[in-house]
Simulated scan of single mutants.
Amino acid sequence: MSYDTQLPHAPSPVAMRNGLGTAALVLGIIGTVSGFIPFFFWLAGILGLIALILGVIGTGRAKRGQASNKGVALTGAILGLAALILSIVGAVLAYTVVSDAADKIDKAIKDSAPKDPTSKAPLGKGAGKGAGKGATDPKAKALAADDTVVYDDDVKVTVSPAKKFSPSEYAAGHTAGNKAWQVTVTIENGGKKKFDTTLVTLDARAGKDGTTAEQIFDDKVGSGFSGTVLPGKKATATFAFDAPAAAEDLTVEVSPGLDYNASQWELKVG
């Protein structure tokens, strides 16, 4: 008698699906590293999100016995979450840096813009009359003699009344038959920084037609300003201009420098 005995076949091994867990770990590492690199927050965010999703799926597979790398998948998910947090922090820091840089650029542009005269405080007779924005403001009126204009940085400019002036024999800029007029310009530094007078310029026009009044140079006038004015100090210089004999007014324009708008004084002559 023979017995035919059949033994049960051993079940075939299940292939482990570890790919997602491994991918989560790799992407989580790259994303976390990217989170520490300035302005790579966007890459950290993208990779971190993918790593987190793949890590969660990979961990689920490991719990169901479909994968054997639960620790790898869990680590990838944690690193993905860390990369997401770093991306948020990086985005905030990047926004702050860009915003600060934009503010500094705006401030630099404003500081480099010409300073406008204002009438912020009375400074004596007729202080600040018609100040506004000096020569750049079409509505601005010329100032009168002894009026003082105050600029944004507290630099103050005053022009005296015009007085008759007798040029010397060797004076330059004077035409025979014309009259010469002398004005005194005072600059007071009410600010907190030194004021450089090197770039102070004066121009003048005479009469209704606005004829250019040439500046006169001799041993008495024409040397102008020089050096710097310390805070709280003043500087004074005398100038003379040549005007037609029939002119009844002299318009003197003073520009304290390249960073300033010029202001005009209407002076009576004749």
Results as ranks from 00 to 15, higher is better:
Leu7Cys: 09
Pro8Trp: 03
Pro11Ser: 13
Pro11Val: 08
Met16Leu: 13
Asn18Glu: 11
Gly19Thr: 11
Gly21Met: 08
Ala24Lys: 05
Leu25Ile: 02
Leu25Gln: 01
Val26Arg: 12
Leu27Phe: 06
Ile29Tyr: 09
Ile29Glu: 01
Phe36Asp: 05
Pro38Lys: 05
Pro38Met: 03
Trp42Leu: 07
Ala44Thr: 03
Leu47Pro: 01
Leu49Glu: 10
Ala51Gln: 04
Leu54Cys: 04
Gly55Thr: 03
Gln66Asn: 14
Gln66Pro: 04
Ala67Ser: 12
Asn69Phe: 00
Lys70Val: 10
Gly71Pro: 09
Thr75Cys: 10
Thr75Asn: 12
Thr75Pro: 12
Gly76Trp: 08
Gly76Phe: 07
Ile78Lys: 08
Ala83Arg: 09
Ile85Val: 14
Leu86Asn: 06
Leu86Trp: 00
Ala91Gly: 13
Tyr95Gln: 12
Tyr95Ser: 12
Thr96Asn: 15
Thr96Gly: 14
Val97Thr: 14
Ser99Ile: 10
Ala101Lys: 07
Ala101Thr: 10
Asp103Met: 11
Asp103Gly: 12
Ile105Val: 13
Lys107Gln: 15
Ala108Asn: 09
Ala108Cys: 04
Lys115Glu: 06
Asp116Trp: 14
Thr118Tyr: 05
Gly124Asp: 09
Gly128Leu: 08
Ala131Gln: 08
Ala135Thr: 15
Asp137Arg: 03
Pro138Ile: 08
Lys139Tyr: 14
Lys141Asn: 08
Ala145Asp: 01
Tyr151Gly: 07
Asp153Tyr: 08
Val157Ala: 09
Thr158Lys: 11
Pro161Thr: 00
Glu169Gln: 09
Ala171Met: 02
His174Thr: 09
His174Asp: 11
Lys179Ser: 10
Ala180Ser: 01
Val183Gln: 00
Val185Cys: 03
Val185Phe: 02
Val185Asn: 05
Ile187Val: 13
Glu188Leu: 07
Glu188Phe: 12
Gly190Trp: 02
Val200Lys: 05
Ala204Gln: 02
Asp218Gly: 04
Val221Ile: 05
Gly227Phe: 03
Leu230Arg: 11
Gly232Ile: 06
Ala235Asn: 05
Thr238His: 00
Ala243Asn: 00
Ala247Gln: 06
Glu248Gln: 13
Glu248Met: 09
Leu250Ile: 01
Leu250Met: 01
Glu253Ile: 10
Ser255Asn: 15
Pro256Gly: 04
Gly257Pro: 02
Asp259Ile: 14
Ser263Met: 07
Gln264Phe: 04
Leu267Ser: 02
